[in-house]
Simulated scan of single mutants.
Amino acid sequence: MSEVKPLVRARNVQKSYGDNDVLKGIDLDVMPGEVVVILGPSGSGKSTFLRCINHLEDMNAGSIMVGDQQIGYELKNGSLQRLSPRNIARQRKEIGMVFQQFNLYPHMTVLQNIIEAPIGVHKESRAEATRHATELLATVGLSDKADAWPRHLSGGQQQRVAIARALAIRPKLMLFDEPTSALDPELVGEVLATMRTLADQGLTMVVVTHEIGFAREAADRVVFMDGGVVVEQGPPGKVLANPEHPRFQAFLSRFI
């Protein structure tokens, strides 16, 4: 039997802005079907690391593999060389990402937002893209909103449409960058419920969030970052109940 390989394999990922070292050598594997939740204080480097996974940020050192793809670079003549923007865009076709802001096209209906990339980038037929979009709207609980305009939706509904839009490209990996941070508290639950549904379906997910409850209920593994490094990681039942590192203990004490 062949060994299951990590879907994401990050090694010694480093990123700095001038003299500010944001990532100081991140090593992390994510297995197929795993839900990894990254916790940490603001400025710890979590979102930067997430953006490096689909090369929205350049790394200064290290490597990230998604499947068998070296993200952002290729090995030529013994050294890593930057891929062309076209080839980077091709890699991103297999990685969905949901941001803090919804970034829906205001001049398009919900359905049009969702089918835009499958038709325009992936060259799906309109009929197939629409069929898949209809399924995704049912998954996120918005079947009745296909013809609605984004401005007529609540923030929670807009974020669920953004999740459906990211899923429309049939990604093998989904990245969530604090997807509930821009929402009013009463709307957070509906987005987290949608994400739990995706987790239950076996989608590989890396989630940056401050929602400890989501981490406890939906994560297979919790990773705590601080100061640009991974400080502690493990199953949520273990590390959230009995964190070993003082920095993680101090972080969690704010939520008790």
Score class of each variant (00 low, 15 high):
Val35Phe: 00
Met1Leu: 11
Ser63Gln: 15
Gly96Pro: 04
Pro32Glu: 04
Pro6Asn: 08
Leu153Asn: 01
Ala199Leu: 01
Ile53Phe: 07
Asn54Tyr: 09
Val110Ile: 01
Val208Leu: 05
Ile115Gln: 09
Arg90Ala: 15
Gly40Gln: 08
Ala218Pro: 05
Phe251Leu: 11
Val208Glu: 04
Arg165Gln: 10
Ser143Tyr: 04
Leu183Gly: 05
Asp68Ser: 14
Gln81Leu: 11
Ala89Asn: 15
Arg9Gly: 00
Lys5His: 11
Asn242His: 15
Pro243Met: 06
Val121Thr: 07
Pro171Leu: 13
Phe49Asp: 08
His107Glu: 10
Pro150Gln: 10
Ala166Asp: 09
Pro185Lys: 07
Gly45Gln: 12
Glu178Cys: 09
Thr204Arg: 03
Pro106Arg: 10
Arg131Pro: 02
Glu74His: 11
Glu124Ile: 08
Arg216Met: 05
Thr204Asn: 05
Ser253Ala: 10
Val4Pro: 07
Gly156Phe: 08
Val30Ser: 00
Phe224Val: 01
Gln69Tyr: 08
Ile119Lys: 10
Arg196Leu: 08
Glu232Ala: 04
Ala138Cys: 08
Glu74Ala: 13
Met1Asp: 14
Ala127Arg: 15
His132Lys: 14
Leu75Gly: 01
Val230Phe: 04
Asp184Gln: 02
His122Trp: 12
Arg165Thr: 11
Pro106Glu: 12
Lys238Ser: 15
Gln159Tyr: 12
Met205Leu: 05
Arg9Asn: 12
Val231Cys: 07
Glu34Gln: 12
Gln81Asn: 10
Ala215Tyr: 05
Glu211Met: 05
Glu74Asn: 09
Gln100Glu: 05
Glu3Phe: 12
His132Thr: 12
His132Trp: 10
Met108Leu: 15
Asp177Met: 02
Tyr73Phe: 15
Gly155Ala: 06
Asp27Ser: 03
Leu111Ser: 06
Val37Tyr: 02
Ala215Cys: 01
Arg9His: 13
Gly33Pro: 00
Val229Phe: 06
Leu142Arg: 09
Gln112Asn: 03
Cys52Asp: 06
Val230Thr: 06
Ser63Glu: 13
Pro246Glu: 14
Ser2Met: 13
Phe176Lys: 10
Gly33Ser: 03
Leu183Phe: 07
Ala193Gly: 07
Ser125Ile: 11
Ala162Val: 09
Thr197Ser: 13
Leu50Glu: 07
